[in-house]
Amino acid sequence: MKYLLLLLLCCGPVTAQSEPKAASIIKKVDENMSSDSRVTESQMIIHGRRKSRTVSSKGYSEGYEKSFTEYLAPAREKGTKMLKLDDRLWIYSPATDRVIQLSGHMLRQSVMGSDLSYEDMMENRKLTEMYHVKIAGEETINGRLTWILELDAKVADVPYVKRKMWIDQKRFVPLKEDLFAKSGQLLKRVTMEDIAQIGGRWYPRKMNYKDMLKDGKGTDFIVSKIEFNAPISEHLFSKAVLKK
């Protein structure tokens, strides 16, 4: 009992101070993780019930609204292009030479059978814009000391109203993230590995997304090449680019 009191006393000032500190942590995380624009080459490894498969793609994005993805492999997917502007989505398939427009609800469907929705993939807003943050403790993950941050949404249009992030105290990169429903139910877990320095920032090259309500191994997302704040031609964010 005595110890508990002592602990509470110690913690008191920590939480009081943590708001500004938490804000600065999350700002540094944003600096690592978020960018005005980016060009990414990545592989997605989808662990199916039967077999796993890898889909490679190259993606260009600017802000939250604009993104363009071109699939590179496997052969079946090669040449498929996807353009998202606001909540509109167009998909071009070379086999049919057609541009198909999908309405907003399709953004919530899973991408290529993975545990990620289009929405999850396009998420690029700064955490500081979306969430209030506080520090909830510390923990060591894979030998690295982390802060546990609790994020509460301050805007309405976020898919996850609550998040919990484990932030590497030295590199300001999340190593693990839990996504919660409004009710507090854990929905998804993202684990980051293979943290590397890319263009002056720390960035996880491998992430695993797992839907916690379903059985399965989740989906791995591996970044083989990423370029931050590179100039992207506006042309890439127009429908003309699809049919080419």
């Binding site: 989808i46 199916g48 077999k51 498969r53 889909v55 079946r76 997917e77 498929t80 998909i91 398939s93 086999a95 049919t96 030479d97 057609r98 198909i100 899973s110 290529m112 059978g113 993975s114």
Partner: peptide
Amino acid sequence: VTYFGSTMNGSMAFKN
């Protein structure tokens, strides 16, 4: 018309 859906493996499927 074009069919759009997902393949057995979850990839996008298209066919005219």
